[in-house]
Design a protein around this nucleic acid. Sequence first.
DNA 1: TAAAGGCGTTAACAAAAGATAATTAATAAA
DNA 2: TTTATTAATTATCTTTTGTTAACGCCTTTA
Lengths: 195, 195
Amino acid sequence: MVDLNRLKQIYKFGKELSLNDLQVLLKAAKNGSFDKKELLINEGSTRNDVFYIKSGLVRCFHINDKGEEVTLKLIPEHQVVANVDLILFSQTSRFFYEALEKTEVFFINYDVLQDLVSRHPKLEANRKYVLQRLLKESMERVESFVLLSPEERYLRFVKDFPGITNRVQDKYIANVLGITPVSLSRIRKRIATKN
Amino acid sequence: MVDLNRLKQIYKFGKELSLNDLQVLLKAAKNGSFDKKELLINEGSTRNDVFYIKSGLVRCFHINDKGEEVTLKLIPEHQVVANVDLILFSQTSRFFYEALEKTEVFFINYDVLQDLVSRHPKLEANRKYVLQRLLKESMERVESFVLLSPEERYLRFVKDFPGITNRVQDKYIANVLGITPVSLSRIRKRIATKN
DNA sequence: TAAAGGCGTTAACAAAAGATAATTAATAAA
DNA sequence: TTTATTAATTATCTTTTGTTAACGCCTTTA
């Protein structure tokens, strides 16, 4: 018998969820594992699994006209990865989702999840929680672009995402901040010389 | 008797909503009207009404350390305005929400809405719809900051928001794009000379 | 009607960022 | 361990943006 209370603590998922509902969810979910550099979701994919990252780190990136990779988002443990193009936009994925570290996940098919939610109404609270969390994160990011300078944006990013600089390459962080790697390097130097 | 089908068409609100559920919602909602320059929500406010803009235009702005107004978002008719700081962050509003035009709204207290949703489960679909739409919009905005240059961002903005340049001052648009009014003026000139 | 204020444009200069390439440092592969 | 690759830093130059201020235009107010 799994200790669900412990599970909740460890995986921080079902915040507003009863143990019973969490059990329903976990019963339907499968375990998965991705090696470093392995893709969870490919560009053009119609895979509609929703992943919950137990451990590891996922990079969402796009390849532009010039063939360059542009990283949009870094998603660490205890967060949800999904093919948002499919779920929100009803189109194939414009992005790649790649494991940057060995990544352990729960995953569940979105249609199955929909069905599960309709049969267990209390799960709706959890869906709401996940959606609100995504919304909050996204809105805070918009705010950081409107209200902050690139330097301030960098400082806030590393503050909100402790240890990230030791886990991923700077060029990915630069992309996420909407600047070039060269510019990020200069910003870091500027900050260093201030202190 | 109100023709709800017509209402749905006009107000585009209850996309996934049955007429009955829409009726429940509208019955609980009050009508409101704001004159130009009037505030829907003040900074520091704990007002937790959710507004649906029937007609008009609302500006969400912030006053920074230097006392300057910085516009974060422009919200036109058929969209939802809410005190997100209160609802998502459990804190008083950091922003002002000001009518830029005479603005007609439906509004409903968020707690009342919560209660309504719990008693009419089908309304949950509508809440999901609103949340997903906000998320989509916010994510697209983040993408525009990461993937596009200021000039491209401006072009996409006016494309996605037809007629906006005739409705609001350029300085508000500049803020929303994360640039200065002077820079926006230069971008417009650059675009003009290209054609 | 005149005065005042606000806004968009333009100018001038400083600061920052982009682009490209060279160098150094770190990492991965042989 | 050595070699090959890849990433980060630095340098140089160009372009863009920020800042401040001046100017003309328009709207509002007296």
